[in-house]
Each structure stands twice: as C-alpha cells, then as structure tokens.
Design a protein around this nucleic acid. Sequence first.
DNA 1: AAAACTATCAACCGCAGAGAA
DNA 2: ATTCTCTGCGGTTGATAGTTT
Length: 294
Amino acid sequence: MGRSPCCEKAHTNKGAWTKEEDQRLINYIRVHGEGCWRSLPKAAGLLRCGKSCRLRWINYLRPDLKRGNFTEEEDELIIKLHSLLGNKWSLIAGRLPGRTDNEIKNYWNTHIKRKLISRGIDPQTHRPLNQTSNTNTVTAPTELDFRNTTTSVSKSSSIKNPSLDFNYNEFQFKSNTDSLEEPNCTASSGMTTDEEQQEQLHKQKQYDPSNGQDLNLELSIGIVSADSSRVSSANSAESKPKVDNNNFQFLEQAMVAKAVCLCWQLGFATSEICRNCQNSHSNGFYSYCRPLDS
DNA sequence: AAAACTATCAACCGCAGAGAA
DNA sequence: ATTCTCTGCGGTTGATAGTTT
C-alpha cells in the first residue's frame, strides 16, 4: 500500500507565493504558533499543502531570519562545518543563527564550491584537488577513517586491523579559544536560547586573523565507563594517528558497553579536557560529548 | 535591441525517521 | 510487530534576474 499524499494536490496552489498567502500564513502562525503543518493550510485558509507552508515559513517568513550576504566569517564557518558534517545542511544551519538550511545549501552550491575549487580544494572531500583523485577510499574527512596504515580498507575489505585517523588539518582557521558547543550537548552547558546562540556567534566572530592557528577537526570515540584512561590514552595526541591492535580490540569490545562517549572536537592548540570522558583534547575550540545512554 | 548564456534561490519532490494507532 | 501519519531533510528543478555576445 502506498503512502497517502501529504495533501490533496488537485486543489492546492504551487509555485511562487503571493503576498496575500504570505500574510495569511504569518497571521495564522502569529496567533496559533507553528505546528501541525498538515492541518494548517485549511485552518489558515490557504490552498497550499502543509509542506509548502512549512517551507515558506522556515525559509522565508520566519521573523528571526537574517537577510543579506554571508560574511567572510560565516563562509569559513560553513566550510569548517561542512568538512566535519558533510551535506548535513540542517546541522550546519543550526550553527548559523538566522540562516536556513536551504539558504546555506544554495550558497554552498553557488559560491563556496567555486571558492574552494579556486583554492585548489575539493569541496566534497576538503582535500587538495590533486590528492582527491588518488584517495578514493574515504570521501569525506568526517567519516570514521579506518584505513590501515599500510593497506586501505577498500583493498582488504576488512577493518580488523585498522588505524584510527581522525585528524584532519586542512585549513587555516581564525579564532580565539572560546568553545563552540553543540546545542544538545548534555555534558556541557547546552545552548538552548537564541540569546546564547547569538552570544556564541559573537564568539565565533572574534577570530583573530593574526593568530593563524591550525584548526584541528578531530573526531574521537572514547569510553565513559571504567578504564576510560586507556581509551583516553588511545585517543591522546601522543598516540595518534594510529591505534594498535590491542587498543582496537579494546575499542571493539567497548562498542557493546552501555555508555560510550562520542567527542567531536574542532580546535586550536590549547589544552582542554573533555568534561565527559576526560579525554585530553589538545585543541579546544569545539567539543561535543554525549553518553549514548543518556 | 535581442538572443544566448549564466547565476541565483525559492520551491518542489521523494525519502527516511519518529511516534502514534 | 506492523502499519500509518506527520515532519524534516537533502537533492533537484525551474523561474527569474543579470550578464555577455
């Protein structure tokens, strides 16, 4: 059985929104708030499908949208986040208050892609273009890199004896050491309000061009529970980029452990300890930890 | 001036995940 | 456990504006 359509398409308008439609939508949401997009069009007197209303509101009518050109800082932040998250536009948009996923996606495709190519960087892999053609085993630095130090996974089709290589230093990024934390991070003061988001954006804007520090985009997996020190050691700066067989077996075993700490780190050369797993983060611009069982 | 080409971005489509029934 | 509904996401399209020939 196929899915029922989200709306009665035969009786809905499509294409560009009129000012009257916009006003109806704005008025309705002003009174009733967002939510229940399926029933909203009828209630608001709109001949549109709910999805269309939601999109129009989120991408265009929302009062907190920031209009205008992207700043250089936003450009760099988008590039950073894309190198970490890939095409997760909604996640990237979550880091840029006032910007929508659609807007960022469009901007990426029309501007940043070209910008990166002109810098000699592959926009998908964030690696130098002349390297990209040679490295087809891993397409994005955000993926777990299980390449063996001598044999790639694509050749061995096994990850029994891999190295863990989450380091990626591709760009010069300009920032102070202020941390930028994931909104949902349970191990730190979660950013929940617009005010906090604005504050963090302000912090992000305090980049010091003279600093010239390397940004370390680093994803590490650590164990919260017993013997975290061992994993901490495995993930420490000294032991990177590879983990020996014993450590990897330990990690495999640890996968079944109940509490696992996932730490994403974007940072600079300052010392910071993950508040959740106590891993030493050699670079402390951004950290994110979340026990899976929380 | 007009046709052809390019860039931009709003909007649509299909799919997947979450939660309810 | 299965089916269904709703919502949100990412990829893609198409209209329009701007630029070049």
